[in-house]
């Protein structure tokens, strides 16, 4: 089951899949909640929150990675506290997942927010007049109508996480078997004489994963429009 890949290449592919899945799954609920806040609530600081959410999309990834290192490094404010609890993020695969999650977050929020804006609040009002409590209205009306957008957001986020490079390499470095994700591995192979072969194989895998994600996302978006 190595598809002609060397152990280091295979490790990078496996690690990237793990990191991206964890990053997507962990940030999806938070992204949904944030999208709901931005789409449905008006409050002081609405614009500021929107700005902060979008920051990783605009900042150079190296800057995001460096900020993560300052905050979540073992000497950092949050990182120091987590270290007391036995959780270390810097230079670990969990840190790579955090970096990927932060970078993918704005894309997921954007997709899901569009979904919230497409769900007519009048339907929720109608459900309320029919006697359904708020929580049930969300589960029975809002969430099913939102599902295509959530899936599209998750797909986009996963693809972004698979390709994340700058913040990851700054925050968790490029340690084979530990923190070397697919893009980091390609970068490392290209730096090594004779590494073009493995690099090209990983490039092909990257293209396949990215295309698959985009096609899936398109398909789900089209389904949402039909609804």
């Amino acid at each position: 089951m190595s598809f002609g890949l060397g152990p280091q290449e295979w490790q990078a592919v496996q690690l990237s899949l793990l990191v991206s899945l964890v990053a997507t799954a962990a940030s999806l609920p938070l992204a949904t909640a944030t999208a709901w806040l931005l789409a449905r609530r008006r409050f002081p600081g609405h614009g500021l929150l929107s700005g902060i959410v979008h920051l990783p999309l605009i900042l150079p990834p190296v800057v995001t990675g460096y900020l993560l290192l300052i905050v979540f490094g073992t000497q950092g404010a949050v990182g120091g506290f987590l270290k007391e609890l036995g959780i270390i993020l810097a230079f670990r695969w969990t840190g790579a997942a955090l970096a990927a999650a932060v970078m993918a977050f704005p894309l997921m929020v954007r997709a899901i927010r569009l979904g919230f804006e497409a769900v007519d609040p009048k339907l929720e009002q109608a459900a309320a007049t029919l006697g359904a409590p708020r929580g049930w209205i969300f589960l029975s009306v809002t969430l099913p109508l939102l599902m295509p957008a959530i899936l599209a957001g998750a797909t986009l986020g996963f693809a972004k996480a698979m390709g994340e490079f700058g913040a990851t390499i700054t925050f968790v470095s490029n340690i084979p078997g530990q923190t070397q994700t697919l893009p980091s591995a390609i970068y490392a192979f290209l730096e090594t004489p004779g590494g073009e072969g493995p690099a090209m194989r990983l490039v092909v895998i990257s293209v396949i994963v990215a295309m698959g994600a985009v096609l899936l996302s398109e398909f789900l978006a089209r389904r949402m429009v039909r609804n």
Partner: peptide
């Protein structure tokens, strides 16, 4: 709350739940 008022409301736009059949719409309450 609207839920507690026992007022059946027919809106100008029908506001049926698009992801449910007519029967599930009718059985929603």
């Amino acid at each position: 709350a609207p839920q507690a008022r026992r007022i059946g409301y027919v809106f100008q736009d029908p506001r049926l739940f698009p992801h449910m059949t007519v029967e599930r719409n009718l059985r929603y309450p």
